Simulated scan of single mutants.
Amino acid sequence: MGAARLAELTASRPEWPGGWLAILPREAGMALRLWLDHPARSPLSTELAADEAWLAAESGRHLLHPDHPAWPTLLGQIADPPPVLWALGDLGALGPPRLAMVGSRRPTREGLTNAAGFARELAERGWCVVSGMALGIDAAAQQAALDAGGASVAVLGCGVDVVYPPRHHRLYRRLQEPGGLLLSEHPPGTPARAGFFPRRNRIVTGLSLGVLVVEAAERSGSLVSARLALEQNREVFALPGSIHNPTARGCLQLIRDGAVLVRDLNDILAELSQWAVAVSAGPDPAPAPVEAREDSLLRWLSDTPTPVDALVTLTGRGVADCQRGLLELELEGAVTHAAGGWIRLPARRGA
């Protein structure tokens, strides 16, 4: 049973366990019935015990599901979300707005430089870089984001306890430290398989507001990610390259087909303006009392209007709670409402 079919069944909110037994395919229903009636005889008991033991062994191990407070709400917008996500690392990495970065596994030096440069600036602007820890562009982008003190999420085509590719063992360990997170729809111990990687791409793009293709040949797997992003109503961005560079032809084709041509990060933020993070031009001043109370709202506001529904997604707060907070901030003169949403006002000097 695939993820899309399971999502359909879950959406019907069947009762436990009778409702599930009635709608599951015959084989799955029989396996569930055996586990319910005779758990000692069911192979599910051994698997569940192993999974529970893995989760309990160390901090930083999590099993995310749609009712978990850290579950990424953007996954609810795609047709085939994973039913669960195994997580290893810092769940706080899921907090900032996210952009996927993908590209060639055999990039040029220029491609590696561009990947690192964009990832570094995204981190400095408060964005999280999502990718697949693959060779080439993926790893360069994720390493640069983490080195800049930002956040990065890697979606794996194996269990989160499996290092793949093996040469990225240092990046794998770094992704378990603050700011990093490893995710997989496969349980711990699952080895990497060729068929898992195209499937994981839907999670990479589903987690993100858009995808930036740095370098891609005409038949690159990165173009699969771009296609998935379009199907998920995500923005697709591409870096242009020389017509004489084979690893740029995929990007040039994407631009010809309607992807946003990217010259610098502002080209991306202009398309995702309602998600733009306010950036301080210098050291942060001592916070005013209102900032201490409503920092979770202020940090997402800039001089570009941000709608309330976007703030709900970014902060994880309810609509009513966001509206109350915005009213307090407006009374303090810290924000105001404009066409398209709320904007942050400049701090008043000498007040």
Results as ranks from 00 to 15, higher is better:
279 V>A: 13
277 V>A: 13
218 E>M: 11
213 V>H: 09
238 A>D: 11
240 P>Q: 12
254 L>R: 10
225 S>H: 09
270 A>I: 11
245 N>T: 14
235 E>D: 15
311 L>H: 06
293 R>P: 05
284 D>P: 01
309 D>V: 12
307 P>F: 03
232 Q>S: 06
254 L>P: 00
297 L>E: 06
293 R>S: 08
309 D>P: 10
218 E>S: 15
268 I>V: 05
219 R>M: 09
254 L>M: 03
307 P>S: 09
205 T>Y: 00
272 L>T: 02
288 A>M: 10
212 L>S: 09
296 S>T: 12
294 E>K: 12
209 L>F: 11
265 L>H: 05
215 E>S: 00
212 L>T: 00
266 N>P: 07
233 N>W: 15
247 T>K: 01
249 R>V: 03
225 S>C: 08
286 A>M: 14
251 C>V: 00
231 E>D: 15
242 S>L: 11
292 A>M: 14
207 L>C: 05
246 P>H: 01
227 R>N: 13
291 E>K: 05
219 R>I: 07
246 P>I: 02
261 L>C: 13
264 D>W: 15
222 S>W: 09
227 R>G: 14
255 I>M: 01
217 A>I: 03
225 S>K: 03
244 H>K: 10
226 A>V: 01
298 L>Y: 10
299 R>D: 08
294 E>F: 15
289 P>C: 06
258 G>E: 00
293 R>C: 13
